[in-house]
């Protein structure tokens, strides 16, 4: 396995958390991982992205270069504009079509449109849009098992906020179902 996943959106959408959950789950399944955030003079509403590498070998560059990403998840329009070109031919592009009305232009990649915000609203919590998107990604890419991701949810929220485990579990499932 050599997955290079780039997740981008605006600050507050939970982009870094998505990446961390994914990296934690992949590590739990015995893979090598790296998680590299963009960091800058950024704030809520600014841009945010994270590069996650998952591999069976030691990871070289933690940065994902243009044309190397096996998957890009674009949570907002500036992210689609900036990172569509990063997907390698044959790779996967997931677009949050709730708030991005533009279509992808590439024809050499697989593009899925996920209504992440709408589906999150249906669950009653707009903050779960990130887990909807992550659920869709896991359904498509099968990088880690859903059970492993649930273990991560329990590890993150279990003791302090058990109600959030169920909420996020539902969001992952809803996202996965939308991508089936």
């Amino acid at each position: 396995m050599n997955e290079q996943i780039l997740i981008a959106g605006f600050g507050g959408q939970g982009v870094l958390s998505m990446g961390k959950m994914l990296a934690e789950a992949a590590m739990a399944e015995g893979h090598e991982v790296s998680w590299l955030p963009s960091y800058g003079p950024e704030m809520r509403g600014g841009t945010s992205n994270v590069s996650v590498n998952i591999s069976d070998k030691p990871i070289g560059a933690p940065i994902i270069s243009p044309g190397d990403a096996t998957c890009v998840m674009a949570m907002n329009l500036p992210s689609l504009t900036k990172f569509e070109s990063f997907v390698k031919p044959g790779g996967l592009l997931l677009v949050n079509s709730s708030i991005i009305d533009k279509k992808a232009t590439r024809t050499d990649i697989t593009v899925y449109y996920v209504k992440a915000n709408d589906l999150a609203n249906e669950l009653g919590n707009p903050k779960t849009a990130n887990m909807i998107m992550l659920g869709a990604y896991l359904e498509k890419a099968k990088v880690v098992k859903p059970e492993t991701m649930l273990d991560q949810l329990r590890a993150v929220f279990g003791a302090k906020k058990p109600q959030l485990v169920e909420l996020n579990e539902n969001a992952l499932k809803k996202g996965a179902d939308s991508a089936k």
Binding site: V33, S34, L36
Partner: peptide
């Protein structure tokens, strides 16, 4: 460097 400081690895 900032990359080593900011990134996460096992």
């Amino acid at each position: 460097d900032g990359m080593l400081g900011q990134m996460m690895e096992p």
